[in-house]
Design a binder for these strands. Structure first.
Ligand SMILES: [Mn+2]
Ligand SMILES: [Mn+2]
Ligand SMILES: [Zn+2]
Ligand SMILES: [Zn+2]
Lengths: 141, 141
DNA sequence: TTTGATATTGATATTCATTATCATTTGTTA
DNA sequence: TAACAAATGATAATGAATATCAATATCAAA
């Protein structure tokens, strides 16, 4: 998907409909800058509209990914998390194995080296996930 | 786990028992150098001993990870794969999004930069996963 | 407006990998 | 060999992700 800047634009481009459920879910998700699981976002959105269903939250997150406004992160544990994508930005993650803290980092040198590695193996690079696991200052014994 | 060099050594250290099922599974797994799913290894081990159960294959792979003789890889798709770890070696992966081909790569500069990034964020680095997704030469249109 | 084609919703069912359970069998040590 | 802890394998449970479907909502055209 070529990313339009807004969810509304995405819906239009795709011939999809605007609903208050989608609006509530998307605006809450984009406003908070968290790495949400579906369940977490579902629970929090319940406070805004208790009628919103789990499936709708799940489907809307998938739409956000397709729109280029969110990405999926799968850290250890096997639960998918979704985070919002800021226009033209990219980052990878540091994850604390004890408290679960997630820190975002950017490192251009690593990015460049990844491109080089892909080239060396005759790969057309489409995406990558670089996750560093460890212990944050508070959790180190 | 401080990694002993052999599975037998690991079992002894832990007070676990040596069984022909474990022997069959482990020797087959270590001999083949593949990124196995539990199901794949289960199917292939059936040819050696059709009585071996799925649960035993799963449990044995978990033991191999604990012994430091295997690692789990979770590429996109959400199915866990296990690969054998060669003494003192480390590598990351390139994955073809079309045919699923998995290529291993080593890049010391990336490794060093990851250590640096962790340090800068006051993290004690324990592990990392760096996966590059793209299209191999055969799958590029 | 009203209509009607089509998309969406939300409750629920399904799928499927992973993990737990437990009666039975096996390995190890004395 | 006996004792007993651990392992096995069939099966059940779990839980996230996804599919289903009747009821409802959206929206462009009339
Ligand atoms: Mn990156
Ligand atoms: Mn690495
Ligand atoms: Zn921490
Ligand atoms: Zn390929």
């Amino acid at each position: 998907m070529s990313s339009p800047k807004t969810f509304q634009g995405y819906l239009q481009d795709k011939g999809l409909k605007s609903t208050h459920q989608r609006d509530d879910i998307v605006s809450y998700f984009l406003q908070k800058s968290k790495h949400f699981t579906v369940k977490e976002l579902y629970r929090e959105v319940q406070n805004i509209d208790p009628k919103i269903g789990y499936a709708t939250v799940h489907r809307t997150l998938k739409l956000l990914v397709d729109a280029g406004l969110a990405t999926e992160c799968r850290f250890s544990g096997g639960i998918t998390r979704f985070e919002s994508v800021k226009e033209g930005e990219h980052h990878d993650h540091l994850v604390c194995l004890k408290c679960g803290k997630i820190i975002e980092f950017e490192n251009d040198k690593i990015e460049q080296l990844q491109i080089k590695v892909a080239k060396e193996h005759n790969f057309t690079l489409a995406d990558h996930k670089c996750v560093l696991y460890g212990y944050c200052s508070g959790c180190r014994e």
